[in-house]
Amino acid sequence: MLRVTHLSKTFNPGTVNAKLALDDLSLHVAPGDFVTIIGANGAGKSTLFNAVSGSFISDSGKILLDGADITLMPEFKRARVIGRLFQDPMRGSAPGMTIEENLALAAGRGGWLSTVSKTDKKLFRERLALLDMGLEDRMQQQVGLLSGGQRQALTLMMATFQAPKLLLLDEHTAALDPATAEKVLKLTTEIVAEKNLTCLMVTHNMQSALELGNRTVMMDRGRIIFDVSGEERAKLTVADLLEQFKIASGKALDNDRMLLT
């Protein structure tokens, strides 16, 4: 589904602050894969997502999505086939607009001059009810009134409303309290499974990195240093993972948000 080949990106080239954020990185993700990504601070996890979703254009290399070359495609065009969630729950929805209006934008049904129809409203209600947060009865309320967890759940629904070819989750539960985080994570796995989405998820939680999905990728200094799936992954423990990191990168894993359990 996603094929990244020899991708490189240097920030502030030619200055003392030059940083090689992606170093000749290659990654192939099969359709239906759910890949969890872990790594130290500044390993290039978010940079990889930014490059794939088009927040910036990479320096060299190629990005193919479902066979189409999207290396130089502008961000808003990629967004039609790539759904993305950020750590900040405020980033994915417009606070001054109602839930219904936000959904209407995400649903992308009809032409530019179309308005929300009764069928749309019914569909929105049904989908919102799946979140089990009572949002279906608050469709005319402004999104700014929702809690962080509710907003992130809504954003998740908006990003997956039209099943995207690729879903990028960038620590999307890190800013939520543990109970809410668990709920949003559960919703995520449900939606991904139901729609059979291809998904990349950056996480700081080592346990869920191993539990969720079918493949785990470890990044360091802009490269992939460890890539595990299948039976080998099933046998891995968090301790093994940390050991693997030490072997592959030559240092202990250092992430100030890392959760080991």
Binding site: R91, G92, S93, A94, G96, A106
Partner: peptide, 9 residues
């Protein structure tokens, strides 16, 4: 929310 729009279609 320009942030949202930038990462939407």
């Amino acid at each position: 929310n320009p942030d949202m729009v930038r990462s939407s279609s």
